[in-house]
Design a protein around this nucleic acid. Sequence first.
DNA 1: AACTCCAGCAACCGCGTTGTC
DNA 2: GGACAACGCGGTTGCTGGAGT
Length: 289
Amino acid sequence: MGRAPCCDKANVKRGPWSPEEDAKLKDYIEKQGTGGNWIALPHKAGLKRCGKSCRLRWLNYLRPNIRHGDFSEEEDNIICSLFASIGSRWSVIAAHLHGRTDNDIKNYWNTKLKKKLIATMAPPQPHQHLAIASSSSAPSSSSHYNMINSLPPYNPSISTNQLITPHQEMMMTMMDQQQQQLLYQEAMDSLVNSPNSNKRIMSHQEDSQEQSTNKGIMLLSDVRSGSSTTSTVTRVKMEQHDHHHEERSMEDYGMEDINHLISSSCTSSSSNSLWFDENKTEDTFMLYY
DNA sequence: AACTCCAGCAACCGCGTTGTC
DNA sequence: GGACAACGCGGTTGCTGGAGT
């Protein structure tokens, strides 16, 4: 038994909104407000539309101060950073971009930004490992990474139990060989950079109360350049399945992670690659692998 | 000019969450 | 505390217009 429809589909108009309908809705809401009841609104406003449709039209198009098109470089960076840290929480991302709607950002990501990022990233060479440049020198637009490590080639016969989480393992089964190679390299990287690296693993005690979530947004440009402005970045707490806890700074969410997320979102459109629990603490995002 | 392909975007759908009784 | 209604969100669909052939 399915869910009951939100309205009588036979008696509501669907499809694109006409200028007259827009005017009616805008006029009504500006004068009367939404009244907190979208279901009743269309009837009161004299519209033959579903309440949901009215709400969507208002929020995405008619609402004052809405901006459409022409995303700036800064907006791109914010979207990328947030996507790397919280995934496809479009409404949360939209909250950081004044005048942008979640639908707009979602469309922009799916049609342009994702492709732009993929195009920016050079395909990885076999036996080489991509890592964020630690130099502060400005990177060229076509190369954001330094190859700093060589790793043994990916070998599917080697057990990855010690390297990857169960979620990653599940994702492995859904990936092609190139994606598996990437994930394998990422897992090796986490070993290479584990506890010995003060830069990459941050202790709980370092957290200071004045850090706010907003302050913590590190722009992708900072990731690219390895900028030292990462000292106040949001801590992203990684809870490993094997109960080893470590915290990753936003600095650790580089192009690899974004690519990883893109890959996983492509291979598994219906399942989120990350579970985001913002209730655990105000200052940390909880990411469960 | 006619047709096909495809990117971009508006709108829809359905599920999870929240509020109310 | 359960049932129901409404809201909010993210994924998906389908229309439109421009580019390419």
